Amino acid sequence: MPSRAPDDIERAHLRDPNDRRFTIARRLPPEPLRAWLRRFWIPVWDVPDGESAAQRVLQYPVCLSITTPGYSRFVGPNPGLSTTVLEGRSWGFGTMFAPAAGAVLSPGTLRDLAGTHCDLEQIPALAGLTEPVRVLMAEDPSAEETHAACCALVEERLERLGVPGEEDLLINAIVEEVEGDSSLLTVGQLGERFGLGERSLQRLVSRRLGLTPAWLIRRRRLHEAAGALRGTEELAELAARLGYADQSHFTHDFRTSTGSTPGEFARRWRDES
C-alpha cells in the first residue's frame, strides 16, 4: 500500500495561503512502479454557493490523469499555467505519471497533447478505470481506505507496462537532473551530463515529453522561485541565485508565467505568516 507523499508539490501549486476551501491528500506508489508513476493526489473541496476557487499550477513535465464526478481526463504536459476552477462540493482522484510514462501511455504524440487533454477512456492502458474510481470515491472521498483502493486500481494497470527500457530510464534521469540541480542553467550543460549533443537532446525531449530542454530548465527555475518566495530571501538575491541577468528579468519571467509579480506573490505568503 503506498505511503503518504511529502508535500513537495506546493511550489508548483500557486495556491492562496488563506484559501481553506479544499484539502489535498497525496500518496506515493510502491517503489517498483516509480519509473512509471510519481504520485497520486486527491483533492476534496467545499466551496460555498456563489463562490469559486481558482487553482493555478505550474505543472511538472509529466502527464496526469484526473477523474471527478463530472469528467475523467488524461492530461498532457502543460507548457503554460494550468488553471482549474473549483465550485460546490466535490472531489478528484489524480495520478501524476513519471516523465517516461506519458509517451508510452498516449496513443498519439505528446507534442500534440501538450497543453490539452483527452478522455481517459481513450488511453488503452487506463480504459475502464473511470467508473470503478467513481464508485469508490462516492462513498467517502476523504477516507484513506478509499484512496488506497483507487490507487491499487491504477497500479495494477501500470504493472502491465513491464520493466522500463533504456530510453524510459534516460528521460526520467534527465528530468530528475534538471529538477534536482539548481546550478544547471543551460541546455549545453544538460547535454554534456548525459553525453548528448544539443540536437539529440532536443529531439529526445520533444518526442518523450512534448517540450524542450530549455523549457525544463525555465520551469525548474520558476518552481524554485515560487518556493523561495514563501520565505524571506530578498528578491535581488533570489534573482541572482536563479541565474537571471537582473531582478527585472526575473520579475518579467515570473509575472508572464504566473500572472503575479514576485513581490505580489511573496506578500500573500509573508502576510499570512
Rank of each mutant, 00 (worst) to 15 (best):
S3P: 09
P6D: 15
D7C: 11
E10Y: 12
R11A: 15
A12R: 13
A12D: 12
D16C: 00
R26S: 02
R27N: 11
R27T: 14
E31N: 12
R38M: 10
R38Q: 12
R39N: 13
I42G: 00
D49C: 15
Q55L: 14
Y60G: 12
Y60A: 15
I66Y: 15
T68P: 04
F74V: 00
T84S: 14
L86H: 12
A100H: 06
V104S: 09
V104K: 14
S106C: 05
G108K: 06
L110E: 06
L113A: 14
C118T: 13
P124C: 01
A125L: 12
L126P: 10
L126R: 01
L129T: 05
P132K: 08
V133E: 02
V135Q: 00
V135S: 05
L136F: 12
E139N: 12
P141D: 09
P141Y: 04
A143S: 15
C150A: 05
C151V: 10
A152C: 09
E156S: 06
G162N: 09
E166C: 00
I174A: 02
E177S: 02
V178E: 01
G180E: 01
G180F: 06
S183E: 15
T186V: 06
T186F: 10
Q189D: 09
L190V: 08
E192F: 12
Q202F: 01
L204R: 13
V205Q: 03
S206F: 07
L211W: 00
L211M: 08
P213G: 02
R218T: 11
E224A: 11
G227K: 05
E234M: 14
L235T: 07
A236P: 05
R241Y: 02
Y244W: 03
D246R: 03
D246E: 11
T251K: 02
H252P: 06
F254R: 05
R255D: 04
S260K: 11
S260G: 08
S260A: 08
S260Q: 12
A266C: 09
R268Y: 07
R270Y: 03
